[in-house]
């Protein structure tokens, strides 16, 4: 897949992974894994970028005697997800047209 495209898609995947409840890095990777391959080193810049774009916020909570970072989706992040679904409505229509049976 085109690298730029995959980058954009993974951004939304991460937002989708935290949209219902706050999550942490390792869990996010495990949640996305069945749908798209994402490694630690791919996830890291995405989280930084989304935080910079104010689409998520970060907080730490104690877990088993250490700190674990949790990611929380913001209003802006939810708006991004909604926009994505709208965009893809259109793309799916095109896809259906392209792959329709003869």
């Amino acid at each position: 897949m085109d690298i730029q495209m995959k980058r954009g898609l993974l951004d939304v995947c991460v937002l989708a992974a935290i949209k219902n409840q706050d999550s942490y890095g390792y869990q996010i990777i495990k949640d996305i894994a069945p749908y798209a391959t994402v490694s630690e080193s791919t996830l890291y810049p995405i989280l930084r970028r989304l935080e910079g774009a104010e689409m998520l916020t970060v907080y730490s909570r104690e877990h088993n005697g250490r700190l674990r970072k949790y990611y929380h989706i913001t209003k802006k992040g939810k708006e991004r997800l909604a926009a994505f679904r709208e965009e893809w409505q259109e793309i799916m229509q095109i896809y259906n047209f392209v792959s329709r049976q003869e």
Binding site: G25, Y26, E40, L67, R68
Partner: peptide
């Protein structure tokens, strides 16, 4: 912190 956490997990 991020990579340390990933190892711990």
């Amino acid at each position: 912190e991020y990579y340390g956490e990933m190892i711990d997990e």
